[in-house]
Amino acid sequence: MNELTSPTAERASATGSAGAFWRAMWAVVWKDLSAEWRSRELLTGMLVFAVLVILIFNFALELDAKARASVTSGVLWVTFAFAGTLGLNRSMASEKDRGCLDGLLLAPVDRSAIYFGKAIGNLIFMLVVEMVVLPLYSVLYNTNLFHPGLLLVVLMGSIGYVAVGTLLSTMAVQARTRDILLPILLFPLVVPVMIAAVKASGGFLQGVPWEELKVWINLLLVYDVIFVAIAFMFFDYVVEE
């Protein structure tokens, strides 16, 4: 595996220390956040979409008190996954269309810094959407979703989802069929995240003891670690010109 990481390593040593890496990474994050602060198009889109999904679920599933107890976590994660795809696609597409991606790649920074910058930006957007959806859902259905365990699951699930999603959306925007490609590429790979997150969230909401939920948390942890590392290793190859 050494050969695989070597281009990244070479560039890192060429551009300096770990300090340069952090600066480059936060510069990318900051760029995304400030651009979003000005236009607000990405977050608005994701949020409206998320609310619409919940609304449709409400009618489709007849979310009465009894049904809600068992399907809440499923509804939440489907909403997050759909809104997440929307955000990932948009974030990379605007990068590509404005020529920012090429500009970023020409900059003398470690490319994995660009990857982590984009991933952290996407993660922040996704968490913002989730932090709006959770209270909204709580109010609409008169339940309390603010369980610390659930928040942990939301964070871990989003990390795994975004780690893979950022890498795949970078590939998808460079393809002719980019609008439909991302979910098709992403969903089969994030099945473990979805299963573990839905099971763990549902467990926390229904007060299942920690011992029984530990296995799902471990699975999320393993997935996050593996795929963050893999995406870090392979990002170079999906942006190479």
């Binding site: 890498l167 099971k199 799902w216 997935y223």
Partner: peptide, 25 residues
């Protein structure tokens, strides 16, 4: 070729986790 290679590797790595997670069900 590059994208295909990356996706084939990612897919291959995700399958064991998928299997374990469904098996736990």
């Amino acid at each position: 070729a590059r994208f295909g290679a990356v996706y084939a590797i990612l897919g291959f790595l995700s399958v064991p986790l998928t299997f374990i997670s469904i098996r736990l069900l």
